[in-house]
Design a protein around this nucleic acid. Structure first.
Ligand code: NAD
Ligand code: NAD
Lengths: 217, 217
DNA sequence: TTTGTATTGCGAATTTTTTCTCGATTTTAT
DNA sequence: ATAAAATCGAGAAAAAATTCGCAATACAAA
């Protein structure tokens, strides 16, 4: 592993990488072999320099005039995000959102492989969703430990989120993707990423509001 | 309306406002009347100055020693995001994710009110999800125009996203909350917010990967 | 009343992120 | 072979966001 593989990229960069990946897939399907930062930037409405700086983090070097080899770039970005290795994951809360995520096959392509789901609802325990078994939440810590699960997805109502998160930590889970609109208090060595839709909604809500106040129409 | 109501807040600020709101609700339930930037910062692991700067955008003034009145702050943030007025919205794509969102009652509290859903699947057309009718996508433009819908949620597979987005624009929709992992090409006056889960996943994936490479355990 | 403490709000400093500039390099066309 | 066009990569500059420092203020306790 090279030194730069250890170098952490800024969060804005991390957020752009999947966008590059989606575009690269599309370009590859279109039969293209190389891509320039100029093209990526135009497609995604970014600055070409920014695209180049982002790509630097993945250790891929481009060639003047032709740009970057798409295949290599895809592999490098996937490796950078560790999406070439699927990470086994548990999900807690098999409600609206939890079920939707379990039914989303594409997560495997993003390195995420659900191996078990957990709930408190007796109606749901014992069933399967797309071959993933739904188990009692009580079984989570022990099973997580034994299966060495490091990744947990939290899709329970906010009032139970802290409790369930602690159960996950008890099971040795080191990264929690939290969809509940609340702040989890966990040991510092546990990575928490809040995938809160309300944050995204706030951005678009405000922009539409501004448009209505100021807007031309 | 004051001048500052027109002032646009930076996106990072917009993203933090819902987090403040969630905390404020919790504090209010706990019977608290005032809150300081210090407390908010400690709870959400932010810098107190940053919290104060964010709150400034909402036109709320605090008092030394006591902080901000929670009730007023809630109202101000909601007003800033226009979450006190519910915005009627259409959603296209009643699959895993679309159904989950339709079933999520709390969106009303975030100013979002689904009035109709659209799909191409004949099995789904004509049904209802939580009192919201599922209609043929063909009816979207005309109905959007007549109902003066400005907000559209896009939860169709990526290969149809551009097509459906254009249909929305045809119907006069001005803000599209896009969940498909692709870049939409639309007129500049249409607000597009990409709520891409993969972006959030990228952040946590990389962090866990780094932890594994460097990590103490 | 006075003193001590916690807090706001604002300007300055710092850090982070984005954008600009430009020389070097590679390919294509003449 | 030479010129023209397009791109990368690196360092500088600019812009944006965060954090610092501190005076002014409100409140509580002595
Ligand atoms: N559905 C959405 O579109 C949406 C949007 C934004 C945020 N969210 C958030 O995502 C989370 C899930 O939302 P949802 O709509 O799926 O809710 P939901 O009520 O449909 O599902 C919650 C599930 O969690 C289970 N649960 C409750 N307590 C549990 C526990 N202690 N252990 C394990 N499972 C438990 C419930 O039995 C239920 O199956 C919530 O925090 C919600 O705020 C959802
Ligand atoms: N489910 C998830 O957890 C998840 C996570 C991340 C991203 N996404 C994205 O969200 C989108 C929806 O995902 P999903 O899992 O719900 O997919 P899905 O396949 O379950 O649902 C898609 C729905 O869109 C409908 N549809 C197809 N073409 C249409 C058209 N032209 N007009 C109207 N409706 C049309 C389909 O009939 C289907 O009901 C996809 O773009 C997906 O990549 C989903």
């Amino acid at each position: 592993m090279t030194a730069s593989q250890f170098k952490s990229a800024p969060e804005p960069t991390l957020r752009r990488l999947p966008r590059y990946l989606h575009l690269l897939f599309r370009l590859r399907e279109g039969g293209l072999e190389d891509v320039s930062s100029t093209l990526i930037a135009r497609e995604l409405k970014l600055d070409p320099t920014q695209v180049r700086k982002d790509i630097e983090y993945t250790d891929i070097v481009g060639r003047p005039k032709t740009g970057y080899p798409i295949e290599d770039l895809i592999i490098a970005i996937e490796a950078f995000l560790n999406w070439n290795n699927t990470e086994d994951a548990f999900i807690a809360g098999v409600g609206n959102l939890g079920s939707a995520m379990l039914g989303y096959q594409r997560f495997k392509k993003y390195g995420l492989n659900f191996v078990a789901a957990f709930d408190t609802d007796k109606q749901k325990i014992g069933t399967q969703i797309d071959t993933i078994p739904v188990l009692s939440i009580e079984k989570l810590p022990d099973l997580a430990n034994r299966m060495k699960i490091k990744f947990g997805v939290l899709t329970v109502p906010p009032q139970y989120a802290q409790f369930v998160a602690e159960i996950m930590v008890e099971g040795g889970i080191k990264a929690i993707w939290n969809f509940a609109p609340c702040q989890l208090k966990l040991p510092d060595d546990v990575i928490v990423e809040n995938a809160q839709l309300t944050q995204s909604l706030a951005v678009i809500s405000r922009k539409l509001h501004e448009k209505k106040i100021l807007g031309s129409d």
